[in-house]
Design a protein around this nucleic acid. Structure first.
Lengths: 407, 407
DNA sequence: ATACTTTCTTCATCACCCGAACGAAGCCAG
DNA sequence: CTGGCTTCGTTCGGGTGATGAAGAAAGTAT
């Protein structure tokens, strides 16, 4: 059992902790006065001033004018410098690579995308990542010392004790590669790696439907079905890093055989491939080619019967798994991501119906189920957010770029 | 999103934090020298000495002789005073009340038990609790100031924002009672309340199969089927306190109708009632009365076919739910509790087989599934452990009983 | 016996937070 | 627009607690 805090504190540690706390508060509030910080933190005004001055010298916060008076002298508002540093976010998908550059508020400043056979070709994948990231950095002329680090989303579970190694069961070709080490030595900056669904969840928690909350479940609907949890504000990985493997939950004992050995796994029923295949069948003679997911979405929106039917069954099957999830974990909110989720209510309605039939009313009552509104860069943004989260928690992760007071 | 630590630190806070850290280390290690503490915590030897002296004066630790030399002066070992304080643990079961008194190492010093209609009679239940606890305190002549507090296990989900109120859906008769407030004002000591399965999980994590780990799932097999999670060393309650409601997961769509509205819920198949009922049927004309759970366990051990068959089907159905749990949460260990779990391998074998057929090999590989060895007081001990955990994390929760240096 | 280690304490020092006092800046009468 | 009051932010001793060096205590190795 874990008991108590793991870290000791000395005078310097005290300052580090208070400093990080203030940095967080300023980041969260966007603008706040020293006096208000002192009231909320119960730190003395003098301490707050000292720390704020410190943060100001390192370029992380700045004066942004006066606020409204509360009956006396007007407060000077402090704001967070969203542009003080940049963060690199990388998504390794099944068939593509995305690289982005964000500021400290999750805004995407540059964006590069390339098709890539990720599963089978680690060598050229990593090379491609290097290219795209370099393009991003050069496009904005960002000096390396003002980059906080790089977050990487990978389509595989990530074991907590070896975050750079991908699962040999899911992507055997990557057996001899350590993503984290490779990119770290290629760029000379901190690299954090996590599973794509986990980072989608983090993205939603910071910038999407979960803002303000601390517990969230995210389901990524794509070729595979992934699931990520945020628990107490942190990505939850499980003891072996495979938490959230929702794709192989059996929801129909008479369903089709899955490669994993079971029958009626979620992926065999609502993965992108069986979904578009089913749509093709339902459309009958009309088309011999299966539609893309995008076409499916458009069809459903346009009211096409076949597309609607496919989405309905998606909602039905997914609901069985989501009900189990609600009963077990009781998250505050469940967010659906992936391209197909953009149909919105067309999916949510049958899903909610299916869930309501199966979940306890107590766990249902408090849980919101929504679709993501973050778009196709959500995962890459989540990867960058992983770095942001780490830095905001520990101010010392911000490299010192402003030595002295070169205002 | 939560970012960073929530608490500020001043000089006193620094001491409090370091003090708690040392207290934990001494508790965990049972015996350790000042020098060793300094090495592990990276605190200076002088600081360690000062804090240890402080802890010694308050009676929490003491000198327990010399250790073996490492080539120089022999270290003086510091040990934790397990008897410095007592903790009260209370279990409210479906049909009984248990009260215990433990030391700071989870050892049960006194134990009182009484049948009680808990569900329908809150008033006399609370009165009974008061009686039993008072008996415990008097039996050991424990003065109130040396009691850390009281932990209470209740057969209902507990909402994080109102820990004393039970769920009106599960136990409607308790609508107007606040367990926490009632007992707090009755005894004038801190009272912590949690769900029984959650506290079973905590118990296992501290004293049972999960010792040393931080992530664990516990399944309580009784009249109802409950489930508790320990995540990062803490009880996980979910956003509304209903995490772990595994009992109403549907595992057989053609199963019997449940009161919750679904078909084939876990409780309707493997709750104590359907279990013994099934055993009665299988035993045919032999007996008209259904056996008790205890008799079922004894029968299975003795090799009776009917009992074995019932246990087998229990393992089969439970395996379906456990497989889902492994895929979703990937705990390091799953512990089965409740009276029926005492059959051990007779249950574990069919359970593991059932799980293996359904869970991903990755999540299975690292997960141990075991039965509890803590006995029938596990839940009450877990309740006491909740108080112990809180106190070890925050030394200031230990009341000051030794004013001055009355050695 | 002597030299070397390790343990634990003592003491001067230093970093940091605090509280009080103060100047700055605004509100609100009269 | 002037004086009292409030709020904001800073300056400056003072106190608390961790530190590191030095030393005493108590071993081991030769």
């Amino acid at each position: 059992m874990r008991v108590g805090t793991a870290e000791t504190v000395d005078a310097a540690g005290m300052r580090a902790q208070n400093s990080s706390l203030l940095l967080n508060m300023i980041w969260r509030e966007r603008q706040i006065s020293r006096a208000e910080i002192a009231r909320r933190t119960e730190l003395s005004p003098s301490t707050v001033s000292a720390i704020v001055a410190d943060l100001e010298h390192s370029g992380l916060v700045r004066n942004i004018g006066a606020g409204v008076s509360r009956g006396g002298r007007r407060p000077t508002l402090i704001g967070f410098c969203d542009d003080a540093y940049s963060i690199v976010g990388v998504e390794l998908g099944a068939t593509h690579v995305t690289a982005i550059l964000t500021d400290l508020r999750g805004r995407v400043r540059v964006h590069r995308h390339a098709p890539q056979a990720v599963r089978d070709d680690p060598k050229s994948t990593l090379q491609k990542v290097k290219e795209l990231v370099q393009e991003c950095l050069e496009a904005e002329r960002v000096p390396k010392r003002s980059v906080l680090g790089m977050g990487v989303a990978v389509p595989s579970p990530v074991h907590p004790s070896a975050p750079g190694k991908l699962s040999p069961l899911i992507v055997p070709a990557w057996r001899d590669y350590d993503v984290q080490e490779w990119l770290k030595s290629a760029f000379g900056m901190p690299v954090l790696v996590d599973n794509d669904a986990n980072l989608g969840a983090l993205s939603e928690c910071y910038w999407g439907a979960g803002v303000g909350g601390e517990d969230l479940a995210y389901i990524k609907l794509a070729t595979g079905i992934g699931c990520g949890f945020i628990i107490h504000g942190d990505v939850y990985r499980g003891s072996g890093g495979t938490a959230g493997e929702i794709g192989h939950i059996a929801v129909d004992s008479s369903g089709p055989q899955c490669v994993c050995g079971l029958r009626g796994c979620l992926v065999t029923l609502i993965g992108s491939v069986p979904l578009v295949e089913r749509a093709r069948e339902l459309m009958g003679t009309k088309g011999r080619r299966a539609p893309t997911v995008r076409e499916l979405v458009e069809g459903a929106r346009a009211g096409e019967q076949a597309a609607r039917q496919v989405i309905d069954s998606l909602g039905h099957y997914l609901g069985i798994a989501v009900a189990g999830l609600l009963n077990l974990l009781n998250p505050a909110i469940v967010v659906l991501g992936g391209e197909i989720s953009s149909v919105g209510d067309l999916l949510l309605d049958p899903l909610r119906t299916s869930v309501r039939k199966r979940a306890l009313s107590t766990s249902m009552a408090e849980t919101r189920i929504v679709t993501s509104a973050l778009g196709d860069k959500a995962i890459a943004v989540g990867a960058a957010t992983l770095v942001l989260q780490a830095a905001l928690r520990n101010r010392s992760l911000f490299p010192l770029q402003h030595v002295g007071r070169t205002a």
